[in-house]
């Protein structure tokens, strides 16, 4: 855990901040996975109808002339799920600066000869966090799109994504 120290102001209790970020981020990933999984399942199910019954069991065939919803419709408000964690990270640089003010250590930070040290120490952690969150959101989005392409029969793909 000490390897995260360099991304935060000196002496700052970053564990709580990491914890909250993790919970918000994990929540976004879990909700998006659950919601998208359910939406895709239901969308694909709507493509089939059951035929036959009896000793040979039920068979399913594709309904004619039916297309699945476009991926962008199924994904819906996917990006909004990441808004809480990104807003949290956007506010944290200010909180870090307040830490310096409240502890009095701002008097030391403002005497450091290096350029922008205080600013960098306030934003480094949140910026890195935001980059990781956004990168994971983009990767997951493409993962879901891959699952969509694999899971939907070619003949039922809509004309637009």
């Amino acid at each position: 855990m000490r390897r995260f120290e360099k991304f935060f102001p000196p002496g700052y209790g970053y564990r709580a901040e990491l914890g909250i970020t993790g919970v918000l981020w994990g929540g976004a990933v879990a909700v998006s996975a659950l919601r998208y999984g359910v939406e895709l399942y239901l969308a694909v199910e709507r493509l089939y109808r059951e035929v036959g019954s009896g000793d040979f069991g039920n068979r399913r065939i594709l309904r004619e002339g039916v297309w699945v919803e476009a991926f962008s419709e199924l994904a819906g408000w996917y990006w909004m799920l990441y808004l809480p964690v990104l807003l949290f990270l956007a506010v944290m640089p200010l909180y870090h600066y307040c830490y310096y003010r409240d502890t009095g250590s701002i008097y030391v930070m403002r005497r450091l000869p290096g350029k922008g040290i205080t600013f960098k120490s306030c934003v480094r952690g949140p910026v890195l966090g935001a980059v990781i969150v956004l990168a994971s959101a983009v990767l997951l989005y493409f993962l879901y799109y891959g699952i969509y392409c694999l899971g939907v029969p070619a003949e039922c793909m809509p004309r637009y994504i």
Binding site: P10, Y12, T103, G104, Y107, R111, L112, P113
Partner: peptide, 30 residues
């Protein structure tokens, strides 16, 4: 600015750090 130092009754150190941490910090920056 590093030619000036400041000691205040309000205290200007990092309360969650040890003196040893402070000496490393000061050594790194000054």
């Amino acid at each position: 600015i590093a030619r000036l130092s400041f000691a205040t009754c309000e205290h200007s150190f990092f309360p969650n750090m040890t003196p040893k941490d402070h000496s490393e910090f000061y050594r790194m920056h000054f």
